[in-house]
Computed example of a mutant assay.
Amino acid sequence: MNNKLKIGIIGLGGIGYSAHMKAFNEIENCEIAALCDIDPSKFERFRKEYGFNNFYTDYKSMLKKEALDAVVVGTSNDTHKDISIFALESGVAVLCEKPVSRNKNEAFEIQKVIDETSKKFMVGQCFRFRNQTEKIQEIIREDKLGEIYYCHGSYIRQRGIPGYGTWFTDKKRAGGGVILDLGVHLIDYVWFLLGKPAFKTVSAYTYGGIGKRLASGEMIGFKGSAWPPTYSGLEKNIFDVEEMASIFIRFKNNVAFHLEVAWAMNIDKASSGGAIFGSKGSVTLNPVIYTHEDKDNMVSEELPFKLEPSHRNQARKFIQFLNGEIDNPAPIDDALKIMHVLDAVYESARQKKEISINTK
């Protein structure tokens, strides 16, 4: 008797291929039963690498024909809401990539259908499932940092605009740029590590000039980069999103959080990381370095942990959630609060002033 949960993956682009397919293929208690993408040219590499042959170009047909327990939604941001709602109303659980939607209104529509159908829904905030997460939470829980007062995070690429000219750089389809791509990771992760305190205000600055220069045909340092532009959308001049953002968030518990994110910046090399600072010590996010007082000295120690791919951990947690073994580790309620914050970030940048965050 086969008791494995049947999973369908919708969206076979970068995240579907490199993360979700690989992760769920390595997890016990589930099997990938169907794959879907609007572009059938993507199917061949799944045939070659995984020997898979059950493909669809229409997610509605897949959900109607296949007896699936859950689907993974890894498509463009503008399709998250409609695909998720159709799956939920079809009686199928959903793991939806971040950001859950383009804005808080779309997230609220998803939440409404979740409540109506009582189907399980989890958001793919993969940073939560990093192995170091529990180690950092343990340090905070044991009061080793003392009174936490400040956090910093960064996710900066030298040249790393994903899919130039595709939906990634089209505000109408993506909802935004690097804030919805990378900023959502850091804001959710630090908020999660801090115990999800109430948000108070945000002040933000955004910039998008480097990406716009691509429209003139300049390579401007992209040759040989990890994300070289395809120029597929240059004839449409599609780059109306931000490539860089500096964001300052205040929580109601008087903790401050500053983060910087960039797809493209004129720096010597790409970097990512962060830290949480307290009155007794600090801890960095990756690697985990705990710095604290030791009599008359300051001591720093790197704490070991077993490094595993966060998407595999996420897939494992999703299956455990579906089987009723754990509570939802990334619920829609959290995602809706984060979307309120992201909407406020864009509004602050537009108004060029600090504004209040209302997550209700």
Rank of each mutant, 00 (worst) to 15 (best):
K4L: 02
I7F: 10
G8I: 00
I9T: 01
L12K: 04
G16C: 10
Y17Q: 12
H20A: 09
K22T: 15
N25L: 05
E31C: 08
I32S: 01
A34W: 07
A34F: 06
C36H: 09
D39C: 05
P40G: 03
P40M: 03
P40W: 14
E44T: 11
K48A: 15
E49L: 15
Y50E: 10
Y50C: 10
F52Q: 09
F52A: 11
N53P: 06
F55E: 10
T57M: 13
D58Y: 11
Y59F: 15
K60F: 06
V71K: 01
V71D: 05
I83Y: 02
F86S: 11
A87Y: 00
G91M: 09
G91D: 09
G91L: 05
A93I: 00
P99A: 09
P99S: 12
S101E: 04
N103Q: 05
K104H: 07
A107G: 15
F108C: 06
T117K: 03
S118N: 14
Q125V: 04
I136R: 03
Q137V: 02
Q137M: 08
D143F: 00
D143Q: 10
D143L: 07
I148G: 04
Y149G: 02
S154C: 13
I161D: 01
P162K: 06
G165L: 02
T166K: 00
F168S: 01
F168D: 00
D170A: 03
K171F: 03
R173Q: 00
G176I: 01
G177P: 01
I179H: 03
I179Y: 02
D181P: 02
G183P: 04
H185Y: 05
F192G: 04
L194H: 06
K200V: 00
K200P: 02
V202S: 06
E218D: 11
E218N: 07
A226W: 15
Y231F: 14
S232M: 08
E243F: 02
S246V: 15
I249L: 14
I249F: 12
A262S: 12
A264K: 02
N266S: 03
I267W: 08
I267D: 01
K269S: 08
S272K: 13
G273L: 05
G278P: 05
T291K: 10
E293L: 04
D294P: 07
D296R: 10
E301V: 14
E302S: 12
L303I: 15
F305N: 07
P309F: 12
N313D: 03
Q314D: 02
F318Q: 04
N323F: 04
I326C: 10
D327A: 14
D327V: 07
N328V: 06
P329E: 02
P329G: 13
P329F: 11
D333K: 14
S348M: 13
I357Q: 05
